[in-house]
Design a protein around this nucleic acid. Structure first.
Length: 261
DNA sequence: ATGGTGGAAGGTCCA
């Protein structure tokens, strides 16, 4: 089973690009973030034409929005609100073998890394705390968590650890928050089991100047985690870096794992 | 230190 996660930054605009990715990677499941489309306007027919018969989506106007596209049947799991908002940042499904799949879009957090001065940063930290509490009370089992978590936890997950220590996405308080989420449910960073932590790895490059492709000023914001029960089933993982160089790209590249389910 | 670009909008807000 190949599972892709991708922040598509508008599904309607980039449906053809999604098709190109599907053609190249032949995924069984695609988890999208920032679909930026209401459920009413979700382009279900176009997505089905790409081979995904089973669709879950939860969107709103202009912002956020998540979707799970699958060739295999999905059973939607009961969602919940996060930080007392209904802002379409999470979807969960049960896969045919019983594995739970969670797709997250964690708040980006604005520009100022201080929860006292920046409500968006406070929201991001609270969201992480709620993830820690929620997964912390779940029993161990077969689970996969994917998504745009908007945090690059390792020094090698950013182009310059030193220069990004005060930049939202790589500050110590966010990294600590993300590490607590991981510890609460013994999550394993699936991608880093194949691409060693000593090696730089990015999944996002800003649209703004001089980050792509020349200076490679990227960050790894998109993640795939599995519970220990699934770790031995992992077969491979990669970032589809070339998609960032295509015409009209998302600022995120797709990330994927191969796993025996 | 600042501003750079892109998407959904059709104001600006958000990333």
């Amino acid at each position: 089973m190949r599972i892709v996660t991708w922040n598509i930054n508008s599904l309607r605009l980039r449906l053809p690009t999604l098709g190109r990715i599907v053609e190249t990677l032949s995924p069984d499941i695609v988890c999208l973030q920032e679909t930026k489309v209401t459920d009413e306007d979700f382009p279900a027919a176009g997505v089905r034409e790409l081979g995904f018969e089973h669709l879950l989506f939860r969107g709103m106007k202009s912002y956020n929005g998540v979707a799970i596209l699958a060739r295999v049947p999905l059973v939607e799991l009961k969602g919940r609100s996060w930080c007392e908002k209904e802002d379409c940042r999470h979807l969960a499904a049960k896969l045919p073998d019983g594995t739970e799949l969670h797709n997250f879009y964690v708040p980006a957090g604005g520009d100022i890394p201080d929860p006292e001065k920046n409500d968006k940063f406070a929201h991001k930290l609270s969201f992480l705390d709620e993830m820690t509490a929620w997964f912390g009370q779940k029993r161990a089992g077969k689970r996969i968590l994917v998504g745009d978590l908007n945090i690059a936890p390792l020094e090698t997950d950013v182009w310059s650890h030193k220069q990004l220590l005060t930049e939202v996405s790589h500050t110590p308080i966010e990294v600590e928050g993300l590490n607590k989420v991981m510890a609460a449910h013994k999550w394993v960073d699936a991608v880093r089991t194949f691409i060693p932590p000593e090696e730089q790895l990015f999944s996002w490059w800003s649209y703004r100047n001089r980050t792509w492709p020349g200076s490679d000023r990227g960050r790894r914001l998109d993640h795939i985690w599995v519970t220990p029960a699934l770790e031995s089933q992992l077969k491979g993982a990669s970032v589809m870096r070339e998609a960032r160089g295509w015409n009209k790209p998302s600022d995120h590249a797709p990330v994927f794992v191969d796993i025996d389910l």
